[in-house]
């Protein structure tokens, strides 16, 4: 069930130059509603030109600490205001929203009877939902492999946390960490066979990965971040063209199988 909730900010951790991690206290009931790949709509108070809520993906649900984590890239006035939050402040969320990544049963189907070997590919702040997905899969006995890309090492978000969770492959465009180049050029793609690919990041990156997956015949889903107003399927602003026509990313997505989309790949 979706709800509007006021959550206490337990901690605000700066992540590099342009991102913050918000750790929010959340009840067990709220936490239990959250599936990996879903998002929340955050009300931004105190920013004069920010009228709408901001859709932010769920970065993690921490059961030990009783928290929901949001990783926020500060790109405009609204998200910069979120970066100014302090411990003890309250944040108003509408949550949880959207469909989320494939569940275990779907991963098994995609693996065609074999043990699922999902590859989680993230670029920039797009790594955010993959952390919770990876942790969630691991608790269910599925070992995820992460493939993370950024322009340079300082822009790799939550790298240590990902490395604590599982195997991490990295590319940077300037070669300052991991392999030099784009995620689609990483050697792991040439050397190993995955049963499904799950992507969140900039549009061109997602399209490149989708093209790879399509060529290799690997099931692939992508998490889109079209601009949204309501987040509830009412305003019809965030639509994506699909084989079924225009559909709302906020309710039919944000995660789509690439075969549902009309991308020219």
């Amino acid at each position: 069930m979706k709800s509007v909730a006021d959550l206490r900010v337990n901690a605000v951790e700066r992540k590099g130059d342009k991102a913050v991690l918000l750790r929010l206290a959340a009840s067990a009931e709220l936490r239990s509603e959250c599936r990996p790949g879903q998002f929340v709509q955050v009300r931004v108070d105190g920013a004069k030109d920010t009228f709408l809520r901001r859709p932010i993906s769920i970065h993690h649900v921490d059961e030990e600490r009783g928290e929901i984590w949001l990783l926020v890239q500060m790109v405009g006035e609204g998200t910069r205001q979120l970066g100014c939050l302090k411990e003890g402040d309250t944040l108003n969320l509408v949550m949880p929203l959207g469909n989320g990544f494939s569940d275990v049963e779907t991963l098994r189907q995609k693996a065609g009877g074999k043990e699922p070997r999902p590859l989680l590919v993230g670029g920039g702040v797009g790594v955010a939902p993959l952390y919770y997905y990876g942790a969630w899969l691991k608790r269910r006995g599925i070992e995820p492999t992460f493939l993370l890309g950024a322009r340079s090492k300082t822009l790799l978000l939550q790298l240590e946390e990902f490395e604590a969770l599982g195997r991490v492959c990295v590319t940077t465009e300037d070669g300052s960490y991991g392999e030099r180049g784009f995620v689609t050029q990483h050697s792991v793609l040439a050397g190993e066979r995955f049963t499904s690919i799950h992507v969140c990041g900039p549009g061109p990156m997602m399209k490149a990965v989708a093209r790879y997956a399509k060529t290799e015949g690997i099931a692939c889903e992508v998490s889109l971040e079209n601009m949204m107003a309501c987040g509830l399927g009412a305003c019809l602003c965030c639509v994506e063209k699909t084989v079924k026509g225009n559909v709302c990313v906020c309710t039919e997505g944000p995660v789509f199988d690439i075969n549902e989309l009309t991308w020219q790949i």
Binding site: T50, F51, N226, M227, M228, C235, C237, E240, K241, N246
Partner: peptide, 10 residues
Amino acid sequence: QGNDYPRMAE
């Protein structure tokens, strides 16, 4: 089908 995306500006 409505108009193409983008359909919204804050």
